[in-house]
């Protein structure tokens, strides 16, 4: 596995195109979290993000020859993730016309944290809702997955300055949103 970890995306793409499951597995390992984050930024729902990310890997493998620059596999692949997510969202919207909130995987947290975390999730959900899709994508890749500006710029095919700008505005908006105390939120809602 160490040997595969050291390989570039282009080398893994080449091996994957010959059916090397270990190489493709390494690509999945490398991009699964980013795929989920990008899908979540579009679908805003855990289950849909999961489905879209998985579908995107299968679609990418079957269309591997269309990746003209294998060294930039990341950007090409995340475009597939984004498109799959949008298609899935479109299908969902057709199926049900109600708004889709950001949700996370069903879990069983410790009882002492239930209330606190539920509150945090709710506030985070609300905060992310006000961002644009690109801002959500950038902020999730950076703040959830830990990607660097340069990596995001490369994979999303946008200048590094634009990434910084999106991140700056996204964080500013998030700070504004997250600084609102729940009580005040409640007052606004009820008042």
């Amino acid at each position: 596995m160490d040997e595969l970890t050291a390989l570039s995306d282009a080398e893994l793409v080449e091996r994957s195109s010959e059916g090397d499951s270990a190489a493709f597995g390494q690509l999945v390992l490398r991009y699964r979290r980013a795929a989920y984050s990008v899908a979540l930024s579009v679908t805003r729902r855990h289950e849909d993000a999961e489905d879209a990310a998985q579908e995107a890997f299968a679609a990418a493998l079957s269309r591997l020859e269309e990746c003209r620059d294998p060294e930039r596999f990341g950007g090409w692949f995340l475009t597939i993730v984004r498109n799959r997510s949008r298609n899935l969202l479109r299908r969902e919207r057709i199926r049900q016309s109600e708004p889709i909130p950001i949700t996370v995987a069903s879990r069983e947290p410790g009882p002492e944290k239930v209330s606190e975390r539920a509150d945090l999730r709710a506030r985070l959900r609300g905060a992310l809702e006000v961002l644009t899709q690109v801002q959500r994508e950038v902020v999730l890749l950076h703040d959830l997955e830990g990607w660097k500006h340069r990596e995001i710029a490369e994979r999303l095919d946008m200048p590094s300055g634009t990434v910084r700008s999106h991140l700056h505005h996204a964080r500013k908006m998030l700070r504004e949103q997250l600084s609102i105390p729940p009580l005040a939120e409640e007052r606004e809602r009820t008042g």
Binding site: I102, R121, H142, L178
Partner: peptide
């Protein structure tokens, strides 16, 4: 995540 609270969106947080 780097931003406090974002880890709540990580599906592997409790799994």
């Amino acid at each position: 995540g780097r931003t406090p609270g974002f880890e709540e969106l990580d599906p592997s947080r409790d799994d």
